[in-house]
């Protein structure tokens, strides 16, 4: 090994990963769906679909729609519920040597607490990612993520229930994301995931109906990358806990942009739908970049934006 060979290992919010690339919640199922294409042991961390205290049926159809360089989704958090997850999904993931991060959602604080308590007691969970930002539910997660007081109350509540590393996933659908970021940090978050999907809408002009049954949905994919980069940079300048950057990452170069903006790790979402190997291709791209620029670690890049 030459001395320029970079190390991709990172430890973010006390989550030790062999590389800084996670899968974004809701885009990688429970991991098992991708094993024909990917060795899960080579991913930085697997972040599973949002879990609620009881199973949720999800929204009516249609639930997705492709838009220029992106897609809208309004899935409505269809999931197996925490008991189903622990009984049926988690045991499979324990076969792998990869940190499993569980995305947690709910409509009320009590639901988040219930899920958190069960995850804290379960074997094989590396961290919790609190989804306070899901834009799809009429009376759900949305309200927490847009209000610093609600964010504070929720994060403090969950913090008391677990010693696991706690990530809080922020919504871009706010006027000033730094206000929510600080509220989450002050309430005890160990790291921040930035960003969730951006609220959007599309219409079939022939029928004049919305393209989604839910009318509005979350926009993801390359279309939101500039928004995500901007928000990572803003949050980086506002807090001192690490950031996991996401939103439209398709390649290693996209990930590098997030590191420069201030992310310590990244997550690959919609790209998994286009290319099932996307997360590993991103890892390779990062490694190539580091080699090309004779860097030894990701840390040299994090927040390295040169402002003219």
């Amino acid at each position: 090994m030459s001395d320029t060979h970079p190390s991709l290992q990172v430890s973010v919010a006390d989550i030790r990963m062999r590389n800084p690339v996670m899968t974004a919640s809701g885009t990688f199922g429970y991991g098992s769906e991708y094993v024909d294409f990917i060795d899960l042991n080579q991913i930085g961390a697997v972040v599973v679909k949002g879990i609620t205290s009881v199973p949720w049926a999800g929204n009516a159809m249609p639930r997705i729609f492709e838009t220029p360089s992106g897609m809208l989704n309004a899935i409505g958090l269809q999931n197996v519920g925490i008991d189903g997850f622990i009984d049926k999904k988690l045991p499979y993931l324990r076969n792998f040597d990869v940190p499993v991060i569980v995305n947690v959602c709910g409509e009320q604080v009590e639901e988040y607490l219930d899920v958190t308590e069960k995850l804290d007691a379960a074997d094989g969970v590396a961290a919790i990612e609190l989804n306070i930002s899901c834009p799809n539910l009429h009376c759900g997660g949305m309200s927490f993520g847009v209000d610093p007081k609600l964010t504070d109350e929720l994060v403090k509540g969950v913090r008391k229930k677990t010693t696991l590393p706690l990530l809080v996933k922020l919504s871009p659908n706010v006027t000033d994301i730094t206000v929510i970021a600080r509220a989450a940090e002050d309430a005890g978050a160990d790291g921040l995931s930035v960003i969730n999907t951006a609220l959007g809408m599309a219409i079939d002009i022939n029928t004049r109906r919305p393209q989604l049954a839910n009318i509005t949905g979350g926009l993801s994919g390359p279309a939101i990358k500039p928004i995500a980069i901007r928000m990572v940079w803003q949050v980086y300048n506002a807090v001192s806990i690490p950031i996991i950057g996401m939103g439209g990452i398709m390649t290693g170069d996209d990930a590098i942009e997030f590191f420069i903006a201030g992310a310590s790790a990244v997550a690959v979402g919609t790209a998994n739908f286009v290319n099932p190997r996307a997360s590993l291709d991103v890892v390779d791209g990062i490694e190539e970049y580091l080699e090309r620029h004779r860097m030894h670690s990701i840390a040299e890049l994090v927040g390295s934006l040169e402002v003219p």
Binding site: F28, A57, M61, P62, R63, F273
Partner: peptide
Amino acid sequence: RMGCALGVCLGCVCKVQLSEGGFEY
């Protein structure tokens, strides 16, 4: 309409009657 076609995005569902009653996407 499909996103992933691998079972993870839950974008392609249809509403199915369950034998034990109720439905599931």
